[in-house]
Design a protein around this nucleic acid. Structure first.
Lengths: 217, 217
DNA sequence: TCAATATGACTTCTGAGTAAGTTACCTCCG
DNA sequence: CGGAGGTAACTTACTCAGAAGTCATATTGA
């Protein structure tokens, strides 16, 4: 049956926004949603709504939900890994380096805190290939930096069990993650105030008396 | 059309397993799946399969997916919060108490490491009521304990900014979480070896030289 | 007029939740 | 002791909603 020939205004048709620009807008919106809700809980239709365009346009430009996530990932990854590597190239070691990293992180994440979440999203479909692999690309870079910093610190202290390094690296990443998360819950904090707070806390924790059996062992 | 009168053996009918026992089995399986995959990625049908029963039985007994999760939560919560409170009643303070807590945690989680995950599952639907509220019930208890320990430690060090306490509590919970997660990825470790590792790492980190501007500020 | 930009209205699939019926145990009456 | 029937334990086979992904079509700048 042919469609009724009634004059029905459609919203279709170009709005004069070039593809590159639209893609940028979409990626920005999508990053925020993915970062806030997680991959699984994010619906493409929702992203389309918030971006003020329609779902098929997203599929036109990004191919699939994973493709969209991938685009967000690469933008965020370039920013993040780049900054962290910049810090790592500095000559700080041990806790000094840790603090510098946190400072860089806070400054970097100030305008768009969600991008951090993309790399530590537990809801992305696991698998040897696909998104998971791309995430690994970046987390490996980040972990390598952390591992190097942690390893250096442990070596200075005369410890060199590789498993110790691995465990402490995991802990360190979690510490960074938790501070970012806490910051997200306390929007009044500035990067500077967060950094100061970290300096203060480092001081307190490290100044605390060691338990007897730690020194004894 | 009437059903064919052919003799078709159905699998229905009681298998003689009393409700309480069945519920226990289901909760055990469900806890593992929820804890491993997260709430969102877990399908009720999958749980039913693994438990060797059918989906409607789960709905019969637990009402809904949330109801099932809730049952897992309460079992796990009773175990977890109870143990942590036991440790907290001890007379250790500061880092000593931290180590004792970790030790208790590792021992407790040895047979069933997943239960920890239930309380820190980012994929549960947010909302003022429902599961989220029940989770909060337990995390509040856990957080309160952590907060108390952290607060005591900061007070001993002469610091008492409540936001500092809150932030350090978040960090401490993340540290515990990351150690459990790391352990999950290294199944060869025993509770004892994990505890030793923590003692060692505490020693190294706390023995590290303080950055200049930490002491300066 | 053609290519780029855009959309409404599908199809398809997955997973939560349900209706209705099946089987086995248990009790109580004879 | 034997069978009627009540009830608890269980399943098959659905419905229904929401989200991924697709198709055909519409609009407009160059």
């Amino acid at each position: 049956m042919p469609r009724p020939t009634v004059a029905r205004r459609s919203n279709a048709g170009t709005k004069g926004v070039p593809r590159a620009e639209r893609e940028g807008q979409i990626v920005q919106v999508a990053t925020e949603v993915f970062g806030t809700l997680g991959f699984a809980a994010t619906s493409v239709a929702d992203v389309a709504d918030r971006a003020g365009i329609s779902k098929p346009l997203i599929y036109n430009y990004f191919g699939s939900k994973e493709g969209l996530f991938s685009a967000c990932l690469h933008r965020a990854g370039a920013i993040l890994a780049g900054e962290l590597e910049r810090v790592a190239r500095g000559d700080a070691v041990g806790l000094e380096r840790a603090l510098r990293t946190l400072e860089g992180l806070f400054t970097l994440l100030e305008p768009q805190p969600w991008i951090w979440r993309l790399f530590f999203d537990p809801t992305v479909p696991r698998g040897e290939e696909g998104i998971a692999a791309e995430i690994a690309l970046y987390t490996d870079r980040i972990t390598a930096l952390a591992d190097q910093g942690v390893g250096e610190m442990l070596r200075l202290a005369g410890a060199d069990d590789p498993l110790d390094v691995a465990a402490l690296t995991a802990v360190w990443l979690a510490v960074a993650d938790s501070l970012v998360t806490w910051w997200l819950d306390h929007p009044d904090e500035t990067p500077a105030s967060m950094t100061e707070r970290c300096v203060r806390l480092f001081g307190v924790v490290l100044g605390a008396p060691l338990p007897a059996h730690v020194t004894a062992d």
